[in-house]
Design a protein around this nucleic acid. Sequence first.
DNA 1: CTGCAAGTTAAAGTTCACTTCAACTCAAGG
DNA 2: CCTTGAGTTGAAGTGAACTTTAACTTGCAG
Lengths: 146, 146
Amino acid sequence: MELLTIGDMAARSGVAQSALRYYEREGLIRSTRTGGNQRRYERHELRRIAFIRIAQQVGVSLDEIREALAELPENRTPTKADWARLSARWRRKLEARIAMMERLRDQLTGCIGCGCLSLSRCKLINPEDRLAARGAGPQMIINPPA
Amino acid sequence: MELLTIGDMAARSGVAQSALRYYEREGLIRSTRTGGNQRRYERHELRRIAFIRIAQQVGVSLDEIREALAELPENRTPTKADWARLSARWRRKLEARIAMMERLRDQLTGCIGCGCLSLSRCKLINPEDRLAARGAGPQMIINPPA
DNA sequence: CTGCAAGTTAAAGTTCACTTCAACTCAAGG
DNA sequence: CCTTGAGTTGAAGTGAACTTTAACTTGCAG
């Protein structure tokens, strides 16, 4: 089996055929066509799909994912090094998001103690209004200083 | 200022008035009305809104948030203890999600080394197909054993 | 060959979480 | 009173990420 059909891809990736066609329309994955106009995928497209799903888990939009994938070479099969570069960049995004969730968790823990949870008044969430300039809401959590 | 107008609430919570009305239609927050049919909010509704936004950050749907909030008392102002219970439960959800992201990060780090990222073939992501019964996709990450 | 599962398309539909709009009413200062 | 800013409603619109549908074509086992 050299090239994979859309059915194969769906089975192997756990992503619906309709979603695969959608990803292709959106420029996230690519396929070649048979004489009869059916899609055939190279095996490495599975990696793109894996990357897409992982990024989605992190809460990234398809737009951003497309941008990231655009950094992979167009004319040759991406190498280990290509993927490594991309993965390293995403590891950073992932860690930023983990850090945010950890802040969130710590705030929530704090609030278990103080019983608070008021967006604008809780000093834990928005201490001393020093952050007012950055807009309303729980700024400490969403958009932390430094 | 006993009760807050929708404008006050929007200003204090950083959530648009239209969103507040939407939350109310969806049964996430409540208000009383003035003689002239305008909404008036008790201050503790701000806490609900804070909770909603925090939960959304964690990637929880409004449906699930509604269910969680439904555990708060209907007929009295929630106490510190009420909120503490809810917050404790959510801390657990939060930690589960953080754990997922950490697995994700570790897998991604692993994949920087091995250059892989193939959903069904990478042993790191889906070792030995032992997880096949739980469906396709990167099961180790999304839905880890135990 | 034939039959049928698997694939193709464009267009419309769906869900979520809101926002925008139009037309209207209310509240409060001068 | 009058004006003006704040609030009200239902209905329609938005954007993301897909799914569904209908009508049709391909690929391959028997």
